[in-house]
Design a binder for these strands. Structure first.
Lengths: 166, 166
DNA sequence: ATCAAATAGTAGGACGTCCTACTATTTGCC
DNA sequence: GGCAAATAGTAGGACGTCCTACTATTTGAT
């Protein structure tokens, strides 16, 4: 997994761009780094999944359904679990359904609710795609396990400060 | 700045979803955290900029031009500095130009090249927008300055491992 | 000098995300 | 019971990102 080569040091750019103008360089450096790493991870995973006709978003949805009790969940619940806007869920399920990997079924008691159920082809696709994702070096090889935990902890602090986790 | 309230703990979800199935929980936890924090930062900044009719991407482009020597840069250079695909630059410049904040001008010697120049309204817009961005609490107040640096360092390691920084 | 290869930018399309309505249904208070 | 408010999902549109062509221009090797 290799990111698009860059002809310059993005952190230096961030410092140049922001320092003294927008905020402390350290803060903007961190913000910029988060943005960039997310971009790297996203494109790496998407590249691995592309041969399987999936994106990370759709793959996550498939995994979520696969590990659910009945192989089906209300769309609302999917949105909560995947932290997506309801319309994003609609979009993703539309595409998965068009590929025959999931299907919408009626909720037995609440007629407002639509259940999304993973199909047999969907289960097979998930299995194949998981192999691809597993083989991805998330670039976190640059970190020891301890450092990875440290990274997660720091990000968790940020999220807590933002009201994430409830 | 507050993220959309979540009725569950996303890290717990990530662990549940990935552990033993895709990879070590620590790795996927970090990946998920990066994705989530990026989302939080992005939406916070965009929210602050919305009243000014800008997105973060367009604001960054404006700042880049503002701090350039001549107030203009080739589109190619903008793409390098902002780490964007050429077509993304085209898209952003299209919108900025439609708002009269920048204009395309011919390069004096290389007729392949298009220079993008910030206009006077563009400069004023940048000033106003910068105030908005400055007032954003990036949620990194959850971190001490030392921790912020630590976060940036860890992310830099990841980027280096991925071939970022060249 | 010529002409293939590299470079700069754009067009069109796919995708994911969000937002603002809007419909259908269910809840809950009176 | 009845009706307002909450809830579930969708439609349509904006935006940013990338990709695959494609055109125009410049470089550079012969």
């Amino acid at each position: 997994m290799t990111a698009q080569p860059l002809p310059f040091d993005p952190i230096a750019r961030a410092a140049t761009l922001w320092e003294e103008h927008v905020g402390p360089a350290t803060v903007m450096g961190a913000v910029t780094s988060v943005m960039r790493v997310q971009q790297i991870l996203q494109s790496a995973v998407d590249a691995a999944l592309r041969p399987h006709g999936l994106t990370f978003a759709r793959y996550e949805a498939l995994v979520l359904l696969y590990f659910s009790r009945r192989g089906s969940l209300p769309m609302r619940v999917m949105g909560q679990r995947l932290q997506l806007h309801p319309t994003s869920v609609t979009n993703i399920v539309d595409r998965l359904e068009a590929d025959g990997l999931v299907k919408r079924i009626a909720h037995p008691t609440d007629r407002r609710t639509t259940l999304v159920e993973i199909t047999e082809p969907g289960r097979q696709r998930r299995a194949a795609a998981t192999e691809a994702v597993t083989s991805v070096d998330f670039g976190l090889r640059g970190l020891t396990e301890r450092q990875t935990e440290s990274l997660t902890d720091l990000l968790a602090k940020v999220r807590r400060a933002c009201g994430d986790f409830q």
